[in-house]
Write a protein that binds this DNA or RNA. Structure first.
Lengths: 102, 102
DNA sequence: ACAATATTTAGATGATTAGCTAATCATCTA
DNA sequence: TAGATGATTAGCTAATCATCTAAATATTGT
């Protein structure tokens, strides 16, 4: 869980996760949303991968990143519960619900 | 909100917040729970203060730290909502509810 | 006033991090 | 087989971070 919080501590990475909420996206397309170099973004992807927050799937010469919502949810839940907060998935608002993230 | 996530990215600081959940505590007593020097802990307190997650009140020669639950809650809520997650305070489990945290 | 106690500040150090450019690897297509 | 494309790795720098010891500040009690 520490890796998840470390990963979430950078605003660029948090925004990557948000972009992935709408659905899987290629590394390059993802990188185009940020004002930093592609190698820098690749490093960010590595941190997110290492934390288990995203999954990479190679598709030809592109790499598709997909949000692993369940990992984010569980980390957040574990932490929130320790403070008497309760987290639940709001099905109405949930996008990217193709079930492939577990 | 970035400062909050930065503050939460360190396990020592997360545990400080958890300890404070049971109620306000002096800096020294708090520090006794960790295997690092007091100046190091003082720096951690500074980060938490800067993020607005705790409040310091000087009482004689001790400094009492208090968790500002509402700040933690709002940061977590703001983030969770962006992912279709819903956070709410679980009144049953809520400790430290002396209302002095806002 | 002095000594003890509680905490923070100052200053240094080693580790990690985010960023860059240049180079490499893998894949596709002409 | 070349060239082009998408992404990562290598190697570097500058900045931030967690930690330490020693010193300073503030407060209390004798």
């Amino acid at each position: 869980m520490n890796k998840v919080f470390k990963a979430l501590s950078d605003p660029t990475r948090r925004r990557v996760l948000q972009l992935l909420r709408a659905g899987p996206m290629a590394a390059g397309e993802l990188a185009d949303h940020f004002p930093v170099s592609k190698p820098t973004m690749s490093a960010h992807f590595g941190v997110l991968r290492d934390a288990g927050l995203v999954e990479a799937e190679k598709n030809g010469r592109t790499v598709i990143y997909r949000l692993k919502m369940s990992v984010l949810e569980e980390a957040l839940m574990g932490f929130a519960q320790a403070f008497g907060l309760h987290i639940e998935l709001d099905e109405a608002t949930a996008l990217a619900g193709d079930g492939k993230d577990t």
